[in-house]
Amino acid sequence: CLCSQPSVTRTVQKDGPNKGRQFHTCAKPREQQCGFFQWVDEN
């Protein structure tokens, strides 16, 4: 991610068109995240 740490892969849980879709995001706690976000299928 943007803070030079490994990102984590998560899955959208919220109902909607992206439910079940995976994405990479910053591994830090929400209030400390660098803002990195990337869909797995758009690499």
Rank of each mutant, 00 (worst) to 15 (best):
Cys1Ser: 01
Leu2Arg: 11
Leu2Ala: 05
Ser4Arg: 09
Ser4Gly: 08
Ser4Met: 09
Ser4Ile: 05
Gln5Arg: 10
Gln5Tyr: 06
Pro6Ser: 10
Pro6Leu: 05
Pro6Arg: 10
Pro6Glu: 09
Ser7Val: 14
Ser7Ala: 06
Ser7Glu: 15
Ser7Thr: 15
Ser7Asn: 04
Val8Arg: 11
Val8His: 04
Val8Met: 15
Val8Lys: 07
Val8Gln: 09
Val8Thr: 15
Val8Asp: 02
Thr9Val: 14
Thr9Lys: 06
Thr9Met: 15
Thr9Cys: 09
Thr9Trp: 02
Thr9Pro: 03
Arg10Glu: 06
Arg10Phe: 12
Arg10Met: 13
Arg10Thr: 10
Arg10Gln: 15
Thr11Pro: 07
Thr11Ala: 07
Thr11Met: 13
Thr11Arg: 13
Thr11His: 08
Thr11Phe: 10
Thr11Asn: 06
Thr11Gly: 07
Thr11Trp: 11
Val12Arg: 06
Val12Ser: 12
Val12Glu: 13
Lys14Gln: 14
Lys14Phe: 05
Lys14Val: 12
Lys14Glu: 13
Lys14Thr: 11
Lys14Tyr: 10
Lys14Asp: 15
Lys14Gly: 13
Lys14Leu: 12
Lys14Trp: 09
Lys14Ser: 14
Asp15Lys: 09
Asp15Met: 12
Asp15Ala: 10
Asp15Thr: 11
Asp15Tyr: 13
Asp15Gln: 13
Gly16Leu: 02
Gly16Arg: 01
Gly16Met: 06
Gly16Pro: 01
Gly16Glu: 08
Gly16Asn: 07
Gly16Cys: 07
Gly16His: 04
Pro17Ala: 11
Pro17Trp: 01
Pro17Lys: 09
Pro17Phe: 05
Pro17Cys: 03
Pro17Thr: 06
Pro17Arg: 08
Pro17Glu: 07
Pro17Leu: 03
Pro17Met: 06
Asn18Trp: 07
Asn18Ile: 04
Asn18Lys: 05
Asn18Ser: 07
Asn18Thr: 07
Asn18Leu: 08
Asn18His: 06
Asn18Met: 06
Asn18Gln: 06
Lys19His: 10
Lys19Met: 07
Lys19Arg: 10
Lys19Cys: 09
Lys19Gly: 05
Lys19Thr: 07
Lys19Ile: 08
Lys19Glu: 07
Lys19Asn: 07
Lys19Gln: 12
Lys19Ser: 09
Gly20Gln: 03
Gly20Pro: 01
Gly20Asp: 03
Gly20Ser: 05
Gly20Trp: 02
Gly20Leu: 02
Gly20Cys: 05
Gly20Met: 03
Arg21Tyr: 00
Arg21Leu: 05
Arg21Ala: 04
Arg21Thr: 01
Arg21Asp: 04
Arg21Pro: 01
Arg21His: 07
Arg21Ser: 03
Gln22Asp: 05
Gln22Val: 09
Gln22Leu: 07
Gln22His: 14
Gln22Ser: 11
Gln22Lys: 07
Gln22Pro: 08
Gln22Thr: 12
Gln22Ile: 12
Gln22Arg: 13
Gln22Phe: 06
Gln22Ala: 12
Gln22Met: 12
Phe23Ile: 03
Phe23Glu: 00
Phe23Val: 03
Phe23Leu: 02
Phe23Thr: 00
Phe23Trp: 02
Phe23Ser: 02
Phe23Pro: 01
Phe23Tyr: 15
Phe23Arg: 00
Phe23Ala: 05
Phe23Met: 01
Phe23Gly: 00
His24Gln: 13
His24Arg: 15
His24Val: 14
His24Thr: 11
His24Leu: 15
His24Gly: 02
His24Glu: 15
Thr25Glu: 09
Thr25Gln: 14
Ala27Ile: 04
Ala27Glu: 01
Ala27Arg: 08
Ala27Pro: 11
Ala27Trp: 03
Ala27His: 01
Ala27Gln: 06
Lys28Pro: 00
Lys28Val: 05
Lys28Arg: 10
Lys28Tyr: 04
Lys28Asp: 02
Lys28Ala: 10
Lys28Gln: 14
Lys28Met: 04
Pro29Gly: 04
Pro29Ser: 12
Pro29Cys: 03
Pro29Met: 08
Pro29Ala: 10
Pro29Arg: 12
Pro29Glu: 10
Arg30Leu: 14
Arg30Phe: 09
Arg30Ala: 15
Arg30Gln: 13
Arg30Asp: 06
Arg30Pro: 13
Arg30Glu: 15
Glu31Met: 08
Glu31Lys: 14
Glu31Ala: 10
Glu31Cys: 04
Glu31Asn: 13
Glu31Val: 06
Glu31Tyr: 01
Glu31Thr: 08
Glu31Gly: 14
Glu31Phe: 07
Gln32Pro: 00
Gln32Asp: 08
Gln32Leu: 08
Gln32Phe: 03
Gln32Ser: 14
Gln32Gly: 12
Gln33Thr: 13
Gln33Ser: 12
Gln33Asp: 06
Gln33Phe: 02
Gln33Gly: 04
Gln33Cys: 11
Cys34Asn: 01
Cys34Trp: 00
Cys34Phe: 00
Cys34Leu: 01
Cys34His: 01
Gly35Lys: 13
Gly35Val: 01
Gly35Trp: 00
Gly35Gln: 09
Gly35Ile: 00
Gly35Ala: 06
Gly35Thr: 09
Phe36Ser: 05
Phe36Asp: 05
Phe36Thr: 03
Phe36Pro: 02
Phe36Arg: 01
Phe36Asn: 01
Phe36Tyr: 11
Phe36Val: 00
Phe36Glu: 02
Phe36Ala: 03
Phe36Cys: 05
Phe37Lys: 14
Phe37Trp: 10
Phe37Ser: 06
Phe37Ile: 06
Phe37Asp: 00
Phe37Met: 13
Phe37Glu: 05
Phe37Leu: 10
Gln38Val: 07
Gln38Ile: 06
Gln38Leu: 08
Gln38Phe: 00
Gln38Trp: 02
Gln38Lys: 08
Gln38His: 04
Gln38Gly: 08
Trp39Lys: 09
Trp39Cys: 03
Trp39Arg: 02
Trp39Ser: 05
Trp39Val: 14
Trp39Gly: 03
Trp39Leu: 03
Trp39Ala: 05
Val40Arg: 10
Val40Lys: 10
Val40Pro: 03
Val40Glu: 14
Val40Cys: 15
Val40Ala: 14
Asp41Gln: 12
Asp41Met: 01
Asp41Ser: 15
Asp41Thr: 10
Asp41Val: 12
Asp41Glu: 14
Asp41Arg: 09
Glu42Met: 11
Glu42Gly: 15
Glu42Arg: 11
